[in-house]
Design a protein around this nucleic acid. Structure first.
Length: 130
RNA sequence: AAUGCAGACUGGGUGACCGCCGCCUCGAUUCGUCGUGGGGGAGGAAAGUCCGGGCUCCUCUAGGCAUGGUGCUGGGUAACUCCCAGGCCUCUGGCGACGGCCCCGAUUCCAUCGGGGUCCCGUUGGGGGACGGAAAGUGGCACAGAAACAUACCACCUCGACUCGUCGAGGCCAGGGUGAAAUCGGACGGUAAGAGCGUCCGGCCGUCUGCGGUGACGCAGCGGCGGCUAAACCCCACCUGGAGCAAGGCCAAAUAGGGGGACAUAGGCGCCUGGCCCGUCCCCGGGUUGGCUGCUUGACUGCGGCGGCAACGCCGCUCCGCCAAAAGCGGACUUCUGCUGGCUUCACCGCCGUCGGAAGGGCUAGAUAGAUGGUCACCGUCCUUCCUUAACCGGAAGGAUACAAAACCCGGCUUACAGGUCUGCAGCACCC
RNA sequence: CGGGGUGUAGCGCAGGGGUAGCGCGCUGCGUUCGGGACGCAGAGGCCGGAGGUUCAAAUCCUCUCACCCCGA
């Protein structure tokens, strides 16, 4: 995920937190809000209760990777908040949680996704094909 | 050998696909960026922020005070609450020995001899120590106890009185009991009873004397013998201005020249002095929470010689950069080989480690909601179970693979840590 | 990242070298027809953890672990 797809600035963070719509599952919470620019941006909130600095950085890296592997539609800002189990979860569990939330928020482009979720073996070949 | 203690080191590897952040180069560009190629990208603690510096700003940070810190000695260092060496104290193991006490045995009692234990002493190995001053002054030492810092309850002794076992006057000191701590411990003398009052052995103190040592200190002599507490106030010696890269500088944007207070013998910088500044200083309130810079190359390090016990210092050499050259400044770990030890082997070979010799060479993290990754496969290392083997080896399955991530940069300290390696010491059995 | 602070009973807080307290809460008894209020009695703490100084540490010192506050 490149730098321009990341969300910065505490003003925009709190705005999304207050005004955005939300969805949640066991590992993550998503809050999202439409923006004016042409691309979508993502922020990740991983608090100190998740773990130490190594664990928090790993969670953010894995979430960025999980979002990158999804075909997201443009024009939205989204905020992912990690819940307590995210520090010990495997990558595949975080990926499933991210896919689930993005689909429920209707932020994914549904047409170019022939394969269903949960088939991790096909993920690299699919992204290389597109 | 196992194991334990102390010290030092290491902190998994290879490949595939998909990604992230800087740098260099070339090309395109609507100057926003995009693409090709190359190269780089977390640690021994990056952590805790406990010390010390560099650097930046505060008008200068000059002198003194205050505050804070350090505290055996000598050395190292840019500096240190750090490091090295030494002194002293203390704990522990070994060895030796004078004396005291206790126990056992032998000889007919006293006594002597032998053995063992314990205390003290000497020497040696290892561990630990915030280790100036209590003889400048002030304070504290609960409860118990007669008494906790100058005192005498019981006991002891002398004298006197009488109601004849008590009272009074005095001497005396630590035998009793209390306590964490009670006037140096033991023996003998001495005495009315006693007392370092005296002698011997030992302990401690000294701003005393001599000798040795750079010094802490040691040895000998002399004088003496009421504590403990300075991580209580304090005294002495030495050091110390404050804030911190969110320091600081530049650009852009935005809000606004707002309110309160202080002032001319004034105000400001902890205080004073010096010096400096001036319509300034302090507080409150409001706005902007963007970019660039600082920003990565630094008290770092290779080899040799000399000095040093060591920590470390000085000089020289090879290569590279600043730069075209000189001078100057700055930077830079691998290979080969020898001795010896271990593993392996019938032996050679091979592997690993300490020490030594020779040769040549190379370096570089710079993010900013915070890059250095995600997934998979194979191989290492360790553990468990099973198979195999006389045993080692070998094979299969399962599990484990830590602690933890730069944020201006260094030097230390402290704390966390799977597994592994090496050195030193202790160490059963066996062999000589 | 830097600077500063706090950990004591279930909760909120005192105590700053000599055996640990206050208020609310809890338990039992009394009072009341019953409850509340009130009265009496009681339980509950190795003072965040480890080490040191001291005869003696919640208190003094060092290290450590949590939590909180401030900042261009």
């Amino acid at each position: 995920m490149q730098r321009r797809h990341r969300l910065t600035g505490s003003k925009r963070f709190s705005q999304i937190h207050v005004e955005g719509s939300s969805a949640a599952n066991r590992l993550l919470v998503i809050r999202y809000l439409a923006n004016d620019s042409g691309c979508s941006r993502f922020g990740f909130l991983v608090s100190k209760r998740i773990g130490n600095a190594v664990v928090r950085n790993r969670v953010k890296r894995r979430l960025r990777e999980a979002v990158r592997l999804n075909p997201v539609i443009d024009g939205w800002d989204a905020l992912f908040i990690a819940r307590r189990g995210a520090g010990t979860a495997k990558f595949q569990e975080l990926k499933d949680a991210t896919d689930n939330l993005l689909r429920r928020a209707k932020l994914v482009d549904a047409s170019p996704q022939p394969t269903g979720p949960g088939q991790s073996v096909d993920q690299p070949s699919e992204s290389s094909a597109t």
